[in-house]
């Protein structure tokens, strides 16, 4: 039997459209949970920071969900959504993102030095304005550190969804494995890593632009 080469460039050319479609799916299903997660984590994190008693129970619930095997959740949701559509992946990944983002928001607000908060109050900031103009901006570096972890893991976790029929670039792994054909597997890995690195780079850039004042300080 002839040795199968690690990569067949002609296969990539012939399947460019399909790979492109899976790539877009992967981007959407990877980023949507982080975006939704951030929108949810902000108010929940604010509530947890204000009423500390909420924090432990909230993190506890989120962590239980986080500990469920992702495949089991996908299969379970398959019964809920019946068809293999995007929510089947986006919903569980959103919970995973929350598990990282809620503590990031709480820690971010916790990173506001006490004298700064007191000074803001003493200068005559009302609570909402203090939150928006002082506390949230100072929390940004810690929140972005959380966003980076959530984004990278979300992009790569999408591929597990391939086992239930909706997994972006993950389909290339199943494809290659079933046919003992390495090219799609390698293409999938390279693209997922490239996506993750790109997304991380964008976030690092965003942090540099948003927080020029934090350059010489700690990041998390």
């Amino acid at each position: 039997m002839a040795e199968e080469p690690l990569i067949r460039w002609d296969w990539i050319g012939r399947n460019a459209d399909r790979i492109g479609g899976l790539l877009v799916d992967n981007v959407v299903m990877g980023l949507a949970p982080v975006a939704i997660g951030l929108v949810v984590a902000l108010p929940v994190g604010l509530a947890c920071a204000r009423w500390r008693r909420l924090y432990q129970p909230t993190v506890g619930i989120i962590n239980v969900i986080y500990s469920l095997p992702s495949l089991a959740v996908f299969v379970l949701l398959l019964n809920v959504f019946i068809l293999a559509t995007m929510p089947i992946v986006v919903v569980p990944l959103t919970f995973y993102a929350l598990a990282v983002l809620i503590p990031a928001v709480v820690d971010g607000l916790g990173s506001v030095p006490d004298p700064v908060r007191q000074a803001a109050t003493a200068m005559g900031f009302r609570p909402l304005r203090r939150l928006i103009q002082v506390e949230l901006p100072i929390a940004v570096p810690v929140v972005i550190a959380g966003l980076r972890v959530a984004t990278v893991s979300s992009i790569s976790l999408v591929s597990v969804g391939a086992l239930v029929g909706k997994g972006g670039l993950g389909h290339l792994f199943i494809d290659g494995w079933q046919r003992q054909f390495p090219t799609p597997i390698i293409v999938g890995i390279v693209l997922i890593v490239a996506l993750a690195v790109l997304a991380d780079g964008v976030l690092i850039l965003a942090q540099r632009l948003l927080t020029p004042w934090a350059r010489a300080r700690r990041t998390a």
Partner: peptide, 30 residues
């Protein structure tokens, strides 16, 4: 209280400057 405080200067230990604002904006807070 916020109205009262805007009419009273306050200097705190460790300065309590806003780390995310430039010096000129820190001074112009009130």
């Amino acid at each position: 209280p916020p109205t009262l405080r805007r009419g009273i200067g306050y200097v705190i230990q460790q300065a309590g400057l806003f780390p995310h604002r430039k010096i000129v904006d820190n001074v112009a807070t009130v």
